Simulated scan of single mutants.
Amino acid sequence: MSPVTVITGASRGIGAATARRLAHAGHDLVLGYRTDHAAAATVLAAVHATGRRAVTVAADTTDPDHVARLFTAADDLGPLTGLVNNAGVTSPIGPFTDLTHTDLRHVVDVNLIGYVLCAQHAVRRMTTGAAIVNISSAAATLGSPGEYIHYAAVKAATDTLTVGLAKELAPRGIRVNAVAPGIVRTDIHATSGVPDRADSAAARIPLGRAGEPDEVAAAIAWLLGPDASYTTGTVLRVAGGL
C-alpha cells in the first residue's frame, strides 16, 4: 500500500517541491493550498505525471472546518501515513514596534494554530510507522531582530510543538520532526516587502547563497521515509550555516 501524505501550502515554494519529490518516492498526496488554483493545478499535474494519485483541496488551515475537509480528502486515498505542516506566512519586515495587531494575529494563526489543528487531525488517523514534519525556521534561534521577531517567536513555538508531540506519540510508533530552513529562494519574501531578500542576504550566509526549495524538500522526504526510522523530536536545520 502506498504512503498517503497531506502537504499544506503545497501550491508553491517548499510545499510544491516537496510534493514533486514525494510523488517520485511513491507517495499519494493531498495538496492543500489557500487561493492559487492555477498553481495548485500545476503541482497536481506534476504529481499525476509520476503515476501517483493526488487531489487538491482549497483550505485555510486556520479554519477548523477547512482542516477537517482537508483530512477527509486524505481518507479517500487510504490510511494516512504522513503530514507536512508547511503552510506559512510572514508579514512586512520592520521594527518590532511597528508590528500591527492584525499582522501579529495572522502570523500566529497560520504558523502555529494551523499547525496544531492539522496535527490533531493527522494524529487521530495515524498508526505505527506514520510521521509528521513541521516546517520551522532558522529564525527560531536567530530571533530575526529588525525583521520579524514575532515570526521567529512563533517558529520557536513550532520547535517546542515538535519536541512535545514527538515524546507523546513515540509510544505509538509515530515520529514527529521539524525542518528549519534558512533563507530559501521562494516568493514568501515578496509578502515581507523584500522580494530580493534571497539575493541581498547572501553575503551573511556562510555558504554564500540562498537555499533552493528542492534542498529543503530533500530533508523533509528523508524525515518521512524509512531511513529516518530512529529519528524523532529533531529539528533539522537546512540553512547554509546560519
Rank of each mutant, 00 (worst) to 15 (best):
S2D: 15
V4G: 08
T5W: 02
T8R: 11
A10R: 02
A10E: 06
S11G: 11
R12S: 15
R12K: 15
A16S: 15
A17V: 12
T18Q: 05
T18G: 06
A19S: 11
R20N: 14
R21S: 13
L22Y: 01
A23E: 13
D28E: 13
L31T: 14
G32T: 10
R34H: 15
T35R: 15
H37W: 02
A41P: 12
T42W: 00
L44S: 14
A45M: 09
T50W: 08
G51C: 11
A54F: 11
V57D: 08
D60N: 13
T62E: 07
R69H: 13
L70R: 05
A74Q: 10
D76H: 12
L77K: 09
A87T: 02
G88S: 14
G88M: 11
V89T: 14
F96C: 10
F96G: 00
T97K: 02
L104T: 00
R105C: 00
R105S: 02
H106C: 01
V107K: 01
D109L: 06
D109M: 03
V110I: 14
V110R: 01
N111T: 05
L117D: 07
L117N: 04
A119N: 01
Q120P: 07
A122K: 07
R125E: 09
R125Y: 04
R125L: 14
M126G: 12
T128L: 07
T128V: 12
G129S: 12
I132E: 11
I132K: 07
I135S: 00
S137G: 06
S137L: 04
A139M: 05
A139S: 15
A139W: 02
T141W: 13
T141Y: 10
T141I: 08
G143K: 00
G143E: 08
G143P: 01
S144Q: 09
P145T: 10
P145E: 14
G146P: 03
Y148N: 12
Y148C: 05
A152L: 06
V154K: 04
T158W: 04
D159L: 04
T160P: 00
L161K: 06
T162E: 10
T162C: 07
T162A: 06
G164E: 08
L165C: 10
L165H: 08
A166V: 01
L169S: 06
A170I: 05
P171H: 03
R175G: 12
R175K: 08
R175L: 11
V176T: 08
V179W: 06
A180I: 02
I183K: 03
I183A: 09
I188P: 01
A190D: 13
T191M: 12
R197S: 00
I205H: 01
I205S: 02
R209K: 10
R209N: 10
D214I: 04
D214A: 15
A218V: 11
A219K: 03
I220S: 13
G225A: 15
G225Q: 09
P226N: 13
D227W: 03
S229A: 15
S229C: 12
S229D: 14
S229V: 07
T231M: 13
T234H: 12
L236T: 09
L236K: 03
V238K: 02
V238H: 03
V238R: 04
A239F: 00
G241N: 04
L242H: 04
